[in-house]
């Protein structure tokens, strides 16, 4: 187990290396990417620009710039080219916001995804199943910003029950939940649809397994068969999926929701930085996202192993 985790962390280093180089190169080749132009200000003379280039090292070869930037990232000294503010401290401010958004939404989508998926799977082919599937596809296909704006329109402007924007720290738990309720729902609807469909398919497969027939032949109640045998086994694919999804949303995929609800999270920060062609924050956020993916997928794999003893011991014949 420990060796497995170490191996995964080893591969994480490689992934981070590759991601950082790729991100760096993208900004190198996009037009108007020279940050010296913006750093030097609107009325800069070529001499100013050259000076800026010298100070920041933009006139050096790409690999030197890369190494220098990486050094700054890992010593925590990296600053934004657009605002001059330390990127790491910005990220530290944004992280709790995004984490609150993602974890809250994940609780919602896992709960509803599992309940709906199990219901649909157990009643495959019935009206319940058809109804749930229709809802799922609606959730999957409706863009989350539309859902977000609809919620804001109804619950903020018409009914005045939830605030339309803003973030309140965990120091005030009620205010925290109050402000995040609508973002949670908007984000969770998409994933609820996906998870419900995945679990439904998994449940349908599991119901056909011989061991479910055995469980019924043992005289277990419907409840016991469903929870202990069907659900327990069907959850396995959901677990590995949720590892990746939580990581992806944490790493900035919640951009749209954060923008819609004006939440100063990582996605919001990323969208602003990309708009300003501001390399350092984008690089840091990308690395953070990749790191989150590696960590969460490792956790998911470990949990997967705990749920399914067969993969703990390979090569049994």
């Amino acid at each position: 187990m420990a060796r497995f985790v170490l191996r995964r962390l080893g591969s994480a280093v490689l992934v981070l290396f590759a991601v950082s180089i790729l991100t760096f190169l993208i900004f190198e080749v996009i037009p108007n990417g020279n940050p010296a132009l913006r750093l030097a200000g609107r009325t800069a003379t070529p001499a100013n620009i050259a000076a800026v280039e010298r100070i920041y090292g933009f006139n050096k070869p790409v690999y030197v710039q890369y190494v220098r930037t990486m050094e700054q990232i890992f010593t925590g000294k990296i600053v934004s080219y657009a605002t001059g503010v330390n990127v790491i401290s910005q990220l530290k401010q944004a992280l709790p916001v995004t984490a609150s958004l993602v974890l809250g939404a994940a609780v919602l989508w896992l709960f509803f995804g599992i309940v709906l998926g199990l219901l649909a799977g157990l009643h495959a082919g019935s009206t319940i199943d058809t109804g749930i599937s229709a809802l799922n596809f609606l959730g999957i296909s409706a863009p989350s910003f539309v859902i977000g704006y609809v919620l804001i329109y109804v619950f903020s402007f018409k009914l005045h029950v939830f605030p339309s924007s803003g973030y309140v720290g965990l120091a005030d738990p009620l205010g925290w939940a109050y402000h995040l309720a609508m973002p949670w729902v908007s984000l969770a609807i998409l994933y609820t649809g996906i998870y419900s469909q995945v679990l439904r398919a998994s449940v349908v497969d599991t119901l056909n397994e011989d061991f479910v027939r055995t469980a019924r032949a043992k005289g277990l109640s419907h409840r016991q068969v469903t929870l202990h045998h069907v659900l327990r086994t069907s959850l396995i694919p959901v677990v590995s999926l949720s590892g990746l999804d939580i990581a992806a949303v944490l790493g900035g995929s919640a951009i749209i929701i954060e923008v819609v609800f004006d939440l100063p999270g990582i996605g919001y920060y990323a969208s602003q930085s990309i708009g300003a062609l501001d390399v350092p924050p984008v690089l840091v956020i990308t690395l953070f996202g990749a790191f989150a993916v590696v960590i969460f997928s490792t956790i998911a794999d470990v949990v997967y192993g705990l749920l399914d003893p067969r993969i703990r011991v390979a090569g049994s014949r």
Partner: peptide, 14 residues
């Protein structure tokens, strides 16, 4: 080649 466990176990051959 056969490995006894996925999380790194002793190796052998069938």
């Amino acid at each position: 080649p056969a490995r006894a466990a996925a999380f790194g176990g002793k190796r052998g051959h069938v």
